[in-house]
Amino acid sequence: MAIQTLTRNIFDVKDLNLWYGDHHALKGVYFPIQKKEVTAMIGPSGCGKSTFLKTLNLMNKMIPNVKITGEVNFAGQNILHSKTDLVELRKHVGMVFQKGNPFPQSIYDNVAYGPRIHGIKKKKHLDELVIKALMDVALWNEVKDRLNAPALGLSGGQQQRLCIARALATKPDVLLMDEPTSALDPISTLKIEELIFELKEKYTIVIVTHNMQQAARVSDRTAFFLMGELIEFAETSKIFSTPKDSRTEDYITGRFG
């Protein structure tokens, strides 16, 4: 799955429909995602933004009775095709979850987990990867003296940054973030936001957030979802200053949601 450089769109989603049993959770979504940008998705609970995010690395496939139609093109290939290699796809499309979920292992082993299983065995090479990933998330200085300590002993914010490092260690092209700061205190949140800002130099980031200020602060483009439909998708500055759709305006001004 070589990444093509011809187009700026790393993901190109066309007419995506998704059902959980009888529930029509995504309705005809068209969604291009540009390389090395931060794309934010906002909307009230149950609007389909998380569902959309989890379609990009096909985590949805774990749920029984799920049906997906349309096209999700990643690097020029429709990943909804039944032959898609999930392992390969998820190496390229990493994910960070709502709550930090480090494995009950040491800090080092958490970060080395992905690369190790993907075949990197040499200690020196692993060490480099782990150090780099921890530096990328600005956690290195805090943990360098206790890499063999249990990851669960870290604070909530540190755990979440460790999880980002763990996702980065497999060298993905895209990083999906599902409300990565909703369980964190304001200072930790700020750190993660600064991190997102730095990471977009190298990665394409797609972030789901409940917090509209966060979307305004970190993203280049913002999408507004409502009841499974993509209502509006534009540059973040436009969405927050001059939304075209009245429903978007109602939501961002806090009239509902």
Binding site: N57, M59, M62, L86, V87, E88, L89, R90, K91, G94, M95, F97, K99, N101, F103, P104, Q105, Y113, G114, I117, H118, C163, R166, A167, T170
Partner: peptide
Amino acid sequence: DLKEASLALGITHWHTIKTVILP
């Protein structure tokens, strides 16, 4: 969420069982 975290890293189901779930 431990299981999801592992699968999302591109780890196969069996490897996830072996390295995360069983321990």
